[in-house]
């Protein structure tokens, strides 16, 4: 474990709880893409199947349980409890256009042709594009609530910190995973546009609105 990965995991945890609290407190999921949340739930479920078979540490197992539980809870709040506030008119990204190609790629490009490894690879590839429905929804509505932009900033920062973690681990531990690094770069690059808007607008107290 290193500071980059620890701060990255905490940033990830913060993002998930900022969103969960926003929906719970405001009793509304306006401006939030339920499709992205479904993809994130799929990412965690397919990635943490080794939860009971491959014990790394208490921290690792605890975080896996928290990530799965909080993301499933978010999907539940959006599609069941506060379904009336779900903005399906703007959450129209065809996620099958993400899941199918990612699934195919996971079969073709992986470290080991075993079920667990292919599911892990699928999860890594899917996570890199899982935010697209959310970014697409913001581009359609033209703006995002400030709390939602904080959620996105924390979520985007987590994988950027993981990139630093992989640089650190490469030089100090000789650890390198090309699939995770490439997917992590793609994932972080997708946030660049948002990061620019967040830093130039939200940091100065303005609302995040995309140029019309």
């Amino acid at each position: 474990m290193n500071i980059f990965r620890l701060v990255g995991d905490l940033s990830h945890l913060l993002a998930i709880f900022v969103l969960l609290l926003k929906i719970w407190k405001s009793r509304s999921c306006a401006g939030v893409s339920g499709k992205s949340q479904i993809l994130f739930a799929l990412v965690f479920i397919t990635r943490y199947l080794d939860l009971f078979t491959n014990f790394i540490s208490v921290y690792n197992s605890l975080m896996k349980v928290i990530f799965i539980a909080s993301t499933v809870a978010t999907v539940y709040l959006m599609y069941i409890k506060f379904k009336a506030t779900y903005d399906s008119n703007h959450d129209t990204f065809r996620i099958e256009f993400l899941v199918v190609p990612v699934g195919g790629l996971a079969f073709l490009v992986n470290h080991d042709f075993t079920p667990l490894e292919i599911l892990w690879t699928f999860s890594i590839y899917l996570e890199s594009v899982a935010i697209l429905p959310q970014l697409f929804m913001i581009s359609k509505t033209g703006e995002a609530e400030t709390i939602t932009s904080h959620y996105l900033f924390a979520l985007g920062s987590y994988r950027a910190l993981y990139l630093l973690n992989w640089i650190y681990r490469y030089y100090f531990e000789g650890y390198f995973d090309l699939i995770a690094v490439v997917a992590g770069c793609v994932q972080t690059i997708l946030y660049c546009d948002f990061f620019y808007l967040y830093i130039t607008k939200v940091m100065w107290g303005k609302k995040l609105s995309l140029p019309a």
Binding site: R5, H12, M63, F67
Partner: peptide
């Protein structure tokens, strides 16, 4: 190489 298969990251 073995170390890589140990998925120790979230």
């Amino acid at each position: 190489k073995k170390a890589k298969n140990k998925k120790d990251e979230l």
